[in-house]
Design a protein around this nucleic acid. Structure first.
Length: 428
RNA sequence: GUGGUCGUAGCUCAGUUGGUUAGAGCGCCAGGUUGUGGCCCUGGAGGUCGGGGGUUCAAAUCCCCUCGAUCACCCCA
């Protein structure tokens, strides 16, 4: 008999946490805890939830993220049916911008703050903190180039992390300048690195031609040493971007957000300009980035807008955040407890449980009972396992008297209670 | 796509220089207590030792192939 397993890089979320290989999948209540913190935090920022389709036009993603980016060239789940090209979204920023333009949300006047929670898909080889189906939440602040928008995106993300109880994370921030300032820097960097090209890795050498900025975030210590005296992007950015950057930092300091400036921070997606930032946890192994984002004033025109629509946002990796929570010992809310577990003795009592549970549930109690006709001992054990607060024991005598033996599972105290009074006693 | 490590029960793992019917702990089920959970005691279920091939009188153990998992590179959340 053939058995089936979930596809590599995907996983089931179960009521209890479990290990999937060496990795740990958080219990579903922990996922819900994270989601509720996101919803609550975003509400405080006046953000509205947006839900966009998993499937998007392939061109939207290719144009938005950059046709030459790794994501587009080798990591997309894309297919064709009829004459339509579909991708399973690898990120959500381009889809949100698509929706913004499609529905003419600019017509609503002010800045749009849109947040999302949902799955994304990339055809990468899985490893700790990296999956083929992974989940992101994010915020996009669309329609403003004000530095407060950048600071607000960062602040809301910080609020989510601290709302969860996370302590060990760092924020790195940089400015990429505008579209005009980057070519000049790019050229300077190439001029600096070309004499030492022999010492670079194969990949970095190729990037020297294709995408030199990405050499900056190499993990190789040797290359980091070579970069020590490299020209800095900050010396090349235009004065407006520099002012903008200073303002963002001032706003962050205003609200007590710590950050470190990292002149080498560049982001992997082509659409970023000016502000770029990244939150990292030291507890996650190689995939240390738990969230990243920045300003993407260039995106709107890439995906078909006639005007520039300035925007800034972030995307956060939920799996990585949950791994960080686990590493910091954050367990989230306690597992649900059953209010009353019905223990039935004899056929008449077994028949009684179904209707009784229904009536108690109608009174908003969490009720459970055995479905296998097992012994009393087994039923008690099951009640214990479900952390029942009370057990209602019913046999022929109790049925005849119209009452149950109600036992408090913590104190062990037990007394007869009329059927109609169970709810009051449990809620008391 | 590239490299390292690892595949024995639901989970975590033992298993000697190849040698009878493959083990433990946890978990699960039942009994000890014919109507009372947790603790304790006893018993039970549950494995094609990832799969295929080879060497051998004999393979979980040695060899080859294959599949899978995992970590890392790359890239990103």
């Amino acid at each position: 008999m053939k058995t089936f397993k979930s596809i590599p890089g995907t996983f089931d979320v179960l009521p209890d946490g479990h290990s999937s290989g060496g990795d740990t999948v958080a219990p579903s209540r922990m996922w819900r805890f994270l989601e509720s913190v996101v919803h609550d935090t975003m509400a405080r920022y006046g953000a509205g939830e947006i839900r966009t389709p998993i499937l998007e036009p392939t061109d939207l993603i290719a144009r938005g993220i950059g046709a030459l980016s790794d994501i587009v060239t080798k990591e997309m789940f894309a297919f064709e049916r009829g004459s339509t090209h579909y991708v399973m979204r690898p990120e959500v920023t381009a889809p949100v911008m698509r929706a913004y333009l499609q529905h003419n949300l600019a017509q609503k006047g002010g800045t749009q703050r849109l947040y999302y929670i949902g799955p994304c898909f990339r055809a990468e080889r899985p490893q700790k903190g990296r999956y083929r189906q992974f989940h992101q939440f994010g915020l996009e602040v669309i329609g403003s180039e004000d530095a407060r928008a950048d600071a607000e995106a960062i602040a809301s993300l910080r609020d989510v992390l601290s709302g969860l109880g996370l302590q060990q994370y760092t924020l790195r921030i940089n400015s990429l300048g505008d579209a005009d300032s980057r070519p000049a820097y790019k050229q300077a960097l190439v001029e600096y690195l070309t004499p030492m090209a022999d010492e670079l890795s194969d990949i970095s050498r190729k990037r020297l031609e294709s995408n030199p900025l990405r050499i900056l975030d190499t993990k190789s210590e040797k290359e980091q040493a070579l970069l020590k005296d490299a020209p800095l992007l900050s010396d090349f950015i235009d004065s407006e971007s520099r002012d903008h950057h200073e303002q963002v930092k001032a706003y962050l300091s205003d609200v007590g957000i710590d950050f470190v400036e990292d002149p080498f921070l560049v982001r992997g997606l082509d659409y970023y300009s000016r502000t770029a930032f990244e939150f990292e946890s030291p507890l996650l192994g190689a995939q240390s980035s738990i969230a990243g984002g920045g300003r993407y004033d260039l995106l709107s025109k890439e995906v078909g807008s006639k005007q520039v629509v300035p925007a800034v946002g972030f995307a956060a990796g939920m799996e990585r955040i949950l791994l960080a929570c686990a590493a910091e010992g954050i367990a989230g809310p306690e597992a649900a407890r059953v209010d009353v577990f019905l223990v039935a003795l004899g056929d008449a009592a077994i028949d009684w449980t179904f209707g009784a549970a229904s009536r108690l549930r109608a009174q908003n109690l969490e009720v459970a009972f055995d479905l296998k006709g097992r012994s009393m001992k087994a039923q008690m054990r099951e009640a214990n396992r479900q952390a029942a607060r009370f057990v209602a024991i019913v046999g022929d005598d109790e049925l005849a008297a119209g009452e149950v033996q109600l036992k408090d599972m913590e104190t062990g105290e037990q007394s007869p209670v009329r059927l109609e009074n169970i709810s009051d006693r449990v809620k008391a």
